[in-house]
Nucleic acid binder design. Structure first.
Lengths: 342, 342
DNA sequence: CCCCCTCAGGTAAGCGCTTTCCTGGCAGGC
DNA sequence: GCCTGCCAGGAAAGCGCTTACCTGAGGGGG
């Protein structure tokens, strides 16, 4: 591998000069020299060693992003927003998938810290696990104390700036919509118990139930993985345990789509025999049949705002917390319950 | 920021000893010292500077991945495979989105080269643009000449190992299926003209047409972006230009889903009045109504194989080229054309 | 005509770590 | 009891850059 010194030797100048030319330093350099150096760079196919540059320079330029899984549309949308802002600022973004493993998340915080990233954006639900949360928080604080910026998405419990999606209010919106339509026997397709997103959204649903004079019993809630298969399994369990159900509320759209497939398989008409509502409004949700009623979260915008916070200049007094509004989107998968004999 | 030297001072040992302890060097260290050092590390919240480590060490550990857009399910699936293998090998992966901008792709190759990544995996269609292709190839070769490994996905034109999805054969499969069903007036929803994936898949479709005694005229082909909106627009254009169409072949599933939405909007029954076939078999394709007939590409497996190639040890004589088999998957969106009067 | 200022370019001191090579102390063998 | 060998730990030389500081030459003013 060619080094700066090789280029300098080849061009018959000092390494300082080569460095200045390569980095477009403000220090003026004679045109003749510049050309000689550029020629040497081309001939030797010199590519500067970024690690050495980072070490020698003071500034940090890249930013790190830790998500559960980029291939999940929820995170894909958020990531798109994060990327856009980072790119506009000329920053490289390093994406890390924790695959919902808290230990891996901790490891990635260290890794991004070690790589001297300027900021870390942590997206995705928190865990109901005090030791983990404390450790994560400690690491984040250490990172911040060395000058790194932290922005979290959907995790109220941590240091740093935060953009918090309205999970509880969104859950309320979904529940309220269903009760208003006249449903009383509602099943909930919930994500994993240990995720705060699950409990937050569920809390909203419960509040709506209460307000309408109902309550959600344990039997009406099925917990499963936050994906298509989890949704299918949960729907099946709910159907088996609660014969009279007229509506299903899924805590995210992936699960709702899994539930839809399960319902279709059993020949249960949606929304004729069963209403279904999701959460998040992933892009694909309009394309299933019937198009999914859901609670919309401005995913890409959440990413944009989080990255903007992480990259904002200047000192700040205390962390910023912004909320991302949940909005009800009624499409074809919800309707009033069909009148039943009895 | 605490440094190795700070820790050494604090523990009253040399930096060499600290380094050995931190890296679990094989060199034995007295237990008492080890404990003192570990205590100092904890107190000072020391996190080693990865750039300095990389510079001082000889080895390269991270691997880079350049895709068009991770949030596109096609790349999301491939990336999942890439990630899995990299993680199994204990490698960090740096994901870069080119957003289909060739210049950005070039810049990312340099960036990954500069960061001393052990390998670069380049996924996504190539461009019909000789200068760009030549420049990219040159950069890749330079990178390889410095010891980096290159693996490309779906780009026959470059240096390095390759896994090549069967785009042409897949196109043939789609076309053949439609003609066999009895369709003769077929419209093609194509991706951007300048992408090799578009022309390859189209070539397969053309071969099928020819074999069945037909041909695809320019009027029967609409080019648009490789996404949902592109598919909708192309479908609309095709319908307007070709009144007698009985089937639509989309060059990827996203476009097919857009077309489906367009058809639904116009009240055209699929597959009753119009058959539709996609390409790729994204996970979501089974969840639209009707479920999409398509040509399946083993996306995740492609990622697995590409990363395995990039990470494989030892010298190799000449680049490896593997093919990923396309397979026809008939679901509900295709049927024989309805008999028409006349 | 000389001095001083200016400025292009070079010298060299790090940046934070790893690792080779060396040192000094101890145990064992003769 | 002395020499040799062994081993834990330290000193220091880089890794490939950036940049503060220095140098020397040339030009302008007194």
């Amino acid at each position: 591998m060619a080094t700066l010194a090789d280029v300098a030797r080849r061009a018959g100048v000092s390494t300082a000069t080569v460095s200045r030319i390569i980095n477009n330093s403000p220090k003026p350099v004679a045109e003749a020299l510049r050309e000689r150096v550029l020629a040497a760079v081309a001939e030797l196919q010199f590519v500067p060693n970024a690690n050495a540059q980072q070490l020698a320079r003071a500034d940090r330029s890249a930013v790190g992003v830790i998500v559960h899984d980029v291939s999940d549309p929820y995170f894909a949308e958020i990531t798109r927003g994060l990327q856009r802002v980072a790119t506009d600022h000329g920053r490289l973004v390093i994406i890390c998938n924790s695959y919902r493993d808290p230990e891996r998340e901790l490891a990635y915080v260290d890794l991004l810290h070690a790589h001297q990233t300027a900021a870390i954006v942590l997206a995705g639900s928190g865990y109901h696990d005090a030791p983990i949360t404390a450790r994560l928080d400690a690491k984040l604080r250490i990172y911040e104390s060395t000058g790194g910026r932290v922005a979290v998405i959907g995790r109220h419990e941590h240091a740093g700036d935060a953009v918090v999606p309205e999970n509880e209010p969104g859950g309320y919106l979904a529940g309220d919509a269903l009760y208003r339509l006249g449903h009383t026997a509602i099943g909930v397709i919930a994500g994993p118990r240990h995720l705060t997103t699950t409990t937050d959204r569920l809390a909203g649903l419960r509040r709506a139930a209460k307000e309408h004079g109902h309550r959600l019993t344990a039997r009406q809630i099925a917990y499963a993985d936050f994906d298509r298969n989890g949704g299918g399994a949960a729907a099946a369990a709910l159907l088996a345990a609660n014969p009279g159900l007229t509506a299903l509320a899924a805590l995210n759209d992936s699960m709702a789509i899994g539930a839809l497939a399960c319902l279709r398989e059993r020949g249960i008409d949606v929304p004729g025999e069963m209403s279904l509502i999701g959460f998040d409004d992933m892009p694909i949700s309009v394309d299933v049949t019937p198009p999914l009623s859901t609670v919309r979260l401005p995913l890409e915008e959440i990413g944009v705002r989080a990255m903007s916070m992480a990259l904002r200049e200047g000192e700040r007094d205390g962390p910023l917390v912004e909320h991302a509004t949940a909005r009800l989107v009624l499409r074809g998968s919800t309707a009033a319950p069909r009148d039943r004999p009895g």
